[in-house]
Simulated scan of single mutants.
Amino acid sequence: MTPEQADAELAAVHPRDAAQAALREVLRERLARFPGHGGSGSGGSFAGSALDRDGTSEHLTTTAFVFERSGRRTALVAHRRLGMWLQPGGHLEPGDASFAAAARREAAEETGLGGLLELALGGMPLDVQRHELATSYGRCTAHLDVAHVFVVPDGSPLVVSEESEGLAWFAVDDLPDGTAPDLPPRLALASALLRA
């Protein structure tokens, strides 16, 4: 995925409110400002762009909200470095064809659900978010995150990865202590959309 392709994906998103619209424009501005070593208008390469984890202090990332098909339970990862429960997700890689493809790859790596993951909500992102990072992350100060929703059959077994301290299914209305503060309303929204 190039910065131009990423921008086209974001341009196609219909934000649900003014705050989401403003944040989407922050992500698009970042892509325009850091197009990669290929330069703007020439297909800009991934390296050095706002998609590259080593390219800028604030770069785009991807998230996967993984739900059982019923929409009642979600898979959360105990993040080793942050010490909290989060949705699967991470950095984009040069071979990722889209934000959704990157989110699927991250979810497969972190949950072991692989081929069971089915993109939901018509393939459109649930939302975009900006996450400030602790100083322990070095030069990286924020993640600008694009979130997609996936479903799997109810009761699908999870396989924890080496990156995480734990992995489990949780009811959306009964999340564990230590859940990231912005997560409950986002999960509630995703669950409601899945069950609508």
Rank of each mutant, 00 (worst) to 15 (best):
D127F: 01
A18R: 14
H143K: 11
A78D: 11
A196W: 02
H143R: 11
E109C: 02
S45L: 07
A188Y: 03
R139I: 05
V77L: 15
A171E: 14
L189A: 14
E132S: 06
R72P: 01
L194V: 06
P185V: 13
S136W: 13
G71K: 09
L183G: 01
V13E: 03
A190Y: 08
H131I: 10
G166A: 07
A12Y: 02
F34Y: 15
L31D: 08
A196R: 06
L117E: 03
E106I: 02
M84L: 14
D96Y: 05
G112Q: 09
D177P: 10
R195M: 06
G48R: 09
V77Q: 15
G115E: 14
L183A: 01
L126G: 13
M124P: 00
S57G: 12
F67A: 12
A22E: 13
A142G: 09
H37I: 05
V149Y: 06
G166S: 12
A11V: 12
L116Y: 05
F46D: 11
E110F: 13
Y137M: 14
A134G: 14
D154G: 08
G71C: 09
A192K: 14
T61Y: 04
V26C: 01
R28P: 01
T61Q: 10
A142L: 12
L76N: 08
S40E: 12
E93A: 15
W169F: 08
G138T: 01
G39T: 00
W169E: 10
H37K: 11
G115N: 06
Q20C: 02
L31H: 08
G114F: 12
V159A: 14
H143G: 10
G48L: 10
A47V: 12
L10W: 09
A22G: 13
L31Q: 13
A101W: 04
S40A: 15
Q20G: 10
E29G: 15
T179Q: 06
A78I: 00
L23W: 03
G123Y: 11
L183V: 07
F99C: 05
G95I: 00
R186F: 00
A120M: 11
G122V: 11
A100Q: 04
A47C: 03
D182E: 14
V160G: 10
T2V: 02
E163L: 11
A147H: 01
A19M: 04
L193D: 02
Q87R: 04
G55R: 04
H91R: 13
D154P: 07
L189W: 08
A120G: 08
D182K: 09
L187Y: 01
A180N: 07
L82K: 15
D145N: 12
D17E: 04
